[in-house]
């Protein structure tokens, strides 16, 4: 237990020194937040709860698809996983720490957005902060389960960048956070239905958590993490 806590603390501290990680988890989402908030305010659009939700889903998708999987693929590509294994450190500890700390980064960014949007852009605070944060957490875990699954199939970092776009772009375009999903062609709407971003955007309807999106998110999360764990075991076992 002490070892895994030590690893989590070290993972968090070393992430904060990594410019690439700071860019993906904080800088780009915050820039997007500033630009989108500015546009909505300038056009006198209703920023209500939609700004907070849109930017948070964007942040979740960016971190879960472009940030976390790249760290896992890098660890595999650079031999970090092998070094840990050779030293007697369990192979699962690294992806576990990366996913847990990635979730923490996402939650920090979500809190920053939620707390600052009312003051900067006149957005309203979610009716239930706990339900909003739970929505973010579930969406983050579900998105990361898909990110982790993708990372199991990819060996090179540059391939991961391309693979991540296949998850990130549809999440932003088809989930309804940028514009109403009903305006999209049907096939795009169908794709959107299986993306965590879409279900996450629907999960918290302002009063309580919706059951169907919750079930879809939970199903995807359990299935993707189970398959990822099995694949990862296969990757890291003795050759």
């Amino acid at each position: 237990m002490k070892a895994i806590i030590t690893q989590l603390v070290i993972q968090f501290k070393s992430d904060l020194r990594d410019k690439g990680i700071l860019m993906v988890y904080y800088l780009v989402p915050m820039l997007f937040y500033a630009v989108m908030g500015g546009i909505m305010k300038t056009l006198s659009m209703d920023t209500g709860a939609s700004l907070t939700l849109s930017i948070t889903i964007f942040t979740v998708s960016m971190s879960a698809y472009l940030g976390m999987p790249a760290t896992l693929v890098k660890a595999r590509e650079q031999g970090i996983l092998e070094a840990y294994r050779a030293a007697g450190i369990p192979s699962w500890s690294l992806p576990f720490a990366v996913i847990v700390i990635s979730t923490l980064h996402i939650m920090i960014a979500a809190v920053i957005i939620m707390a600052s949007a009312p003051y900067i852009f006149g957005a309203v605070l979610p009716k239930s902060i706990a339900a909003h944060l739970l929505t973010v957490l579930l969406t983050a875990l579900c998105s990361q389960s898909l990110g982790a699954l993708t990372a199991c199939f990819v060996k090179k970092q540059n391939t991961m960048t391309l693979a991540a776009q296949c998850l990130f772009l549809p999440s932003i375009m088809f989930s309804g956070i940028m514009f109403p999903a009903e305006l999209l062609p049907k096939p795009m709407q169908w794709i959107g239905e299986v993306l965590p971003a879409t279900q996450g955007a629907r999960l918290y309807g302002g009063a309580c958590l919706q059951l169907l999106p919750l079930a879809v998110l939970a199903g995807i999360t359990v299935a993707a993490f189970t398959v990822s764990a099995a694949l990862f075991r296969k990757i890291s076992e003795r050759k």
């Binding site: 070892a3 030590t6 660890a75 970090i80 050779a86 030293a87 007697g88």
Partner: peptide, 21 residues
């Protein structure tokens, strides 16, 4: 062999020692 790029020497030692108890 390699370690995460942004881990410090003392953190790496702390991590390895923790896992070896």
């Amino acid at each position: 062999t390699s370690l995460p790029e942004t881990i410090t020497s003392s953190e790496a030692m702390r991590l390895f020692c923790a896992w070896h108890k």
